[in-house]
Computed example of a mutant assay.
Amino acid sequence: MFQGKFVDNSRKVKSLKSIEFAIEHPQEHESKLIKKSRLLAVVAWIGFFVSFLLYFQELRGLYLPALASFSGILYGLSMYLDSTIKQWPLVAKHVDIDSVKKEISEIET
């Protein structure tokens, strides 16, 4: 599954266990992603709000576009998690859980 010399075994095992958990516990996986998505969206909107407040109070500086950009990145991550939530049921059907478990056991031994 994993190829390349830049991915170490601990990272492989962590990723594979994450996939295994997502397949075996789909509701928990979905609720975890929903919580992360909502948290990122709330923090992003707070950042946008603060950016607009600072802009209209004419407190401009380098921090203002940095804060707005960071908020935009957070909101983009929130949208990414939302699409992941919607796509995972389709992808999970095509993942061979036995192959994932076998690779975890091979790496850990």
Rank of each mutant, 00 (worst) to 15 (best):
Asp98Cys: 08
Glu106Tyr: 03
Leu16Gly: 07
Lys14Pro: 03
Phe70Arg: 00
Ser37Phe: 00
Gln27Glu: 15
Phe70Ile: 06
Tyr63Trp: 13
Ser31Glu: 11
Gly72Thr: 07
Phe21Trp: 04
Leu81Gln: 05
Ile34Phe: 05
Pro26Trp: 03
Pro65Cys: 12
Lys36Thr: 11
Asp98Met: 12
Lys36Tyr: 03
Asp96Arg: 06
Ile46Tyr: 09
Ile73His: 04
Ile104Lys: 01
Arg38Phe: 08
His25Gln: 11
Ser31His: 08
Trp45Phe: 14
Leu33Pro: 00
Val50Glu: 04
Leu39Glu: 14
Gln3Pro: 03
Gly76Asn: 13
Thr109Asp: 09
Glu28Met: 08
Lys14Tyr: 06
Val43Thr: 09
Phe48Leu: 10
Met79Arg: 12
Ser51Pro: 14
Leu90Arg: 14
Leu39Ser: 12
Ile104Asp: 01
Arg38Val: 07
Phe70Glu: 05
Ala41Gln: 07
Ser51Arg: 06
Thr84Ile: 15
Ser10Ala: 14
Lys86Tyr: 12
Glu108Asn: 03
Val50Ala: 05
Glu106Thr: 08
Tyr63Glu: 15
Leu74His: 01
Leu77Gln: 05
Leu90Trp: 05
Leu67Ser: 05
Gly47Glu: 00
Gly47His: 00
Asp8Lys: 12
Ala68Phe: 13
Ile46Phe: 06
Asp96Asn: 14
Gln57Asp: 11
Leu90Pro: 01
Tyr63Thr: 04
Ala92Gln: 02
Glu20Phe: 10
Ala66Asn: 02
Ser31Gly: 01
Leu74Tyr: 00
Phe52His: 13
Asp82Glu: 12
Tyr63Cys: 04
Ile19Trp: 00
Gly72Leu: 07
Glu106Asp: 13
Ser99Val: 14
Leu16Val: 00
Lys86Phe: 07
Val7Arg: 03
Leu77Tyr: 12
Ser18Tyr: 15
Gln87Pro: 01
Leu62Pro: 05
Tyr63Ser: 12
Glu58Arg: 06
Leu77Phe: 14
Ser15Thr: 11
Ala92Lys: 07
Phe70Leu: 09
Glu58Ser: 10
Asp8Asn: 12
Pro26Phe: 10
Leu54His: 06
Ile23Gln: 02
Trp88Pro: 09
Gln87Tyr: 10
Glu20Thr: 01
Lys35Phe: 09
Lys14Leu: 12
Lys102Ser: 10
Ser31Ala: 01
Lys86Ala: 15
Lys5Asn: 15
Lys101His: 03
Trp45Ser: 06
Ser99Gln: 14
Arg11Gly: 06
Gly61Phe: 01
Ile107Lys: 02
Met79Lys: 14
Pro65Trp: 07
Leu54Cys: 12
Ile34Trp: 03
Ile104Glu: 00
Pro26Ala: 08
Ala92Leu: 07
Ser10Arg: 14
Met1Asp: 01
Thr84Gln: 14
Val91Leu: 15
Leu59Pro: 08
Pro89Val: 01
Trp45His: 05
Ala92Asp: 02
Met1Tyr: 08
His25Leu: 02
Tyr80Asn: 07
His94Glu: 11
Lys102Trp: 11
Ala68Cys: 03
Phe2Ile: 04
Leu16Thr: 03
Met1Val: 15
His25Arg: 12
Leu16Asn: 02
Phe52Arg: 12
Lys32Leu: 10
Val91Trp: 04
Ala22Phe: 00
Ser31Gln: 13
Leu64Trp: 06
Leu64Pro: 06
Ser18Asp: 02
